[in-house]
């Protein structure tokens, strides 16, 4: 073990240490012998179109796609697991992998055409920009004015505690890397975060590891709203079903926009193919029209007024909240706010 941060993470994730906890897996067989091994935090259904499009370009290549949590992905790459490409929405963890020397550089015409904020040192490349949104159940909000700022949401929760008791969902930031990133960035950017957390804490909030489950619960009316859901997933699912039961809300006082990023781990063997996939994703990230792709491009975050806040910056500052001492302090504060029984 090179790094002590890892020791802390290991303690957080002690149960997963022995093996990678795989959430989903599929092999897209190609006609040849070569296999591109991709580890990702993105659900298979979201990434399937991308992988099929890539395989259409390189039919001989088999693609081995493994879905894990962002913390698992971080730990696997740090531990030297052999993957050719790591795709994750937890940009802080991805950044730390690049900073600490677990990524190898890739440079092509496409990657150099990426805007400065969407790449760092030819090591890490962003290919989507996705906002954190509120997903709410229209049924549960019937007769209420939809809140547009955190302050309005706080006021609403205070006014109707019975209506929202046990019906508020958000990430468990102790488990979810993405949830932790959203929470820390939001806490840094707006003081309303802690006020909101306090209020939510009094309403027996439901804590989730992943977006999917949260959205399902909103759609089925178990939750009135889910706070800090990744916009793209929500939009994707909304488009498919719900029949108007689910609505997406962007906060107008401040919205986090995260960049989904790719790195080529130092253990990679199929570096050329991994580079080609990065190029394809980066090309799609720079497309003008949203098109049929499940994930939004870099320049467009789906919901209009969210773009102006700009994505979270790729840079060493991302490592600040990963520091074990900082993490411990933040989690203590978060627990104090969220678990008031």
């Amino acid at each position: 073990m090179r790094h002590t941060c890892l020791a802390v993470l290991l303690s957080c994730l002690a149960t997963f240490v022995s093996a990678l906890e795989i959430e989903d897996y599929r092999l897209f067989p190609g006609t040849g012998d070569r296999v591109l091994r991709v580890i990702s935090t993105g659900d298979l259904e979201v990434f399937e179109p991308y992988l099929l499009a890539f395989q259409a370009r390189q039919p001989s290549l088999s693609i081995d796609y493994t879905v894990v949590s962002s913390a698992q992905l971080y730990q696997a790459i740090r531990g030297g697991a052999v993957f050719d490409l790591a795709l994750s929405s937890a940009m802080d963890l991805q950044f730390q992998l690049a900073n600490d020397g677990f990524a190898q550089s890739h440079r092509s015409e496409t990657t150099t055409s990426l805007p400065d904020w969407a790449r760092w040192r030819d090591l890490i490349f962003a290919f989507t920009a996705e906002p954190a949104v509120v997903v709410l159940s229209t049924q549960r909000f019937e007769g209420l004015d939809l809140p547009t700022t955190r302050q309005e949401l706080v006021t609403l929760l205070r006014e109707y505690p019975d209506r929202f008791d046990g019906a508020v969902g958000t990430y468990d930031v102790r488990d979810s890397g993405l949830g932790y990133l959203f929470a820390t960035q939001e806490a840094r950017s707006t003081d309303a975060y802690w006020r909101l957390s306090e209020v939510m804490g009094r309403l027996n909030p439901q804590l989730y590891c992943c977006s999917g489950q949260m959205i399902d619960d909103v759609a089925e009316g178990r939750l009135a709203f889910a706070y800090n859901v990744l916009g793209s997933y929500a939009a994707d699912r909304l488009a498919r079903d719900s029949g108007g039961r689910v609505q997406i809300l962007g906060m107008q006082d401040f919205t986090n926009v995260i960049l989904r990023t790719a790195i080529v781990p130092t253990t990679a063997r199929e570096t050329a193919a991994a580079g080609a996939l990065i190029d394809m994703l980066a090309d799609l990230g720079q497309r003008e029209a949203p098109g049929d792709w499940p994930l939004p491009p870099l320049g467009q975050t789906g919901t209009d007024n969210l773009v102006e806040f700009g994505p979270i910056r790729l840079g060493p500052a991302l490592m600040v909240y990963l520091d074990p001492l900082n993490r411990r302090a933040f989690l203590t504060e978060w627990e104090n706010a969220m678990e008031q029984r």
Partner: peptide
């Protein structure tokens, strides 16, 4: 002894160049 890494301590390093920070 406690400390809290300030965000600015690293963001200022990120502002001058794309260099790795330890």
């Amino acid at each position: 002894v406690r400390l809290e890494l300030p965000y600015s301590a690293f963001s200022m390093l990120g502002a001058i160049s794309e260099d790795r920070v330890f």
